[in-house]
Design a protein around this nucleic acid. Structure first.
Lengths: 168, 168
DNA sequence: ACCTGAACACCGTTCAAGT
DNA sequence: ACCTGAACACCGTTCAAGT
């Protein structure tokens, strides 16, 4: 999808219509306007953006520390188009109310999950929340950097982070 | 500046010319094209984006741990237009070669500075580098979230991070 | 040296008209 | 129910012509 490459501005109706071999007028039968198409893209992301990862992590192990590591591998692991998608959404959330609402909901769910993981690993509740926030910032910062360069955090850095987050 | 609000796409020559009360044709006397204007914006950011912070931090204290805290206050402190500017640059670096080159240079300089701060605080070299990467990811992740919501990391989270980063 | 105005291309949007 | 084609607005870019 174009969205994963150039973000919201790369989603243009005339080129899209051309690549589908229809007139651009036809686009307006399917969507009210360009904003509606973008909203549909954002909505699709919301559906995929939470449950998938949580399920994988919960099936990975029973041990909280191992679960945290499984989460690291799922999210910091091999770069994919999903990273670029995240960046596009967040950049666009700065300008679009709907994208903003969706991004906030997704963030909230993910943060709650990470915090519960850390509590299971024995970190007190308030500190678990703070560390979840830290981890989440680190993750989306890493994604942002991947958008214009190589992955920044290799395995050794992730192992450090894993250890630091579980420090009593 | 428009760039701090909507990023690179918010920088348009016709509206700019209109707001300056000149014809848009006149714009092309001062800049080769829109890309050249954006390049100039990015270059100005590069000049401000490194030295300022480093100087402030070095004057703040002699003690490495206090210096690290001063860095936290400088960078995670009160949100400003500079945060939004960072986001705009990084988003655009995904699509523009010049912005990418500048962003990488800035990242490199800042990371070297943070790593040296951590080494001064007694963290071994390789681990200092890893932790610098972690801190930097966290910072730009925080900035990205500020683009569409309230600051995520409050003082308590920052103090946790400060302590974790200095853990032997 | 700096600006204007007209021209063209590209894309978003609308809409009457077609099947 | 779905599509076309023409029309209009907005903006990037060029360029001959003005001062």
């Amino acid at each position: 999808m174009r969205f994963a490459e150039g973000g919201a501005d790369a989603v243009r109706v005339e080129p899209l219509a051309k690549s589908l071999g229809v007139s651009k007028g036809s686009f307006y039968w399917h969507f009210a306007d360009r904003a509606a198409l973008l909203a549909a893209i954002v909505d699709a992301w919301e559906r995929r953006g939470t449950l998938e990862i949580i399920e994988t992590v919960e099936q990975a192990s029973e041990d909280p520390a191992e679960r945290l590591w499984a989460l690291f591998e799922q999210t910091f692991g091999t770069p994919s188009a999903a990273d670029a998608f995240e960046n596009g959404i967040r950049a666009w959330a700065g300008q679009d109310a709907h994208a903003r609402a969706v991004a906030k909901r997704v963030d909230k769910q993910r943060l709650a999950f990470v915090a519960s993981l850390l509590r299971d690993a024995g970190i007190p509740k308030a500190e678990a929340k703070r560390r979840a926030d830290l981890l989440y910032c680190t993750l989306i910062g890493e994604y942002l950097q991947r958008g214009y360069g190589k992955p920044k955090l290799e395995r050794a850095a992730l192992r450090s982070l894993h250890r630091l987050l579980l420090t009593p």
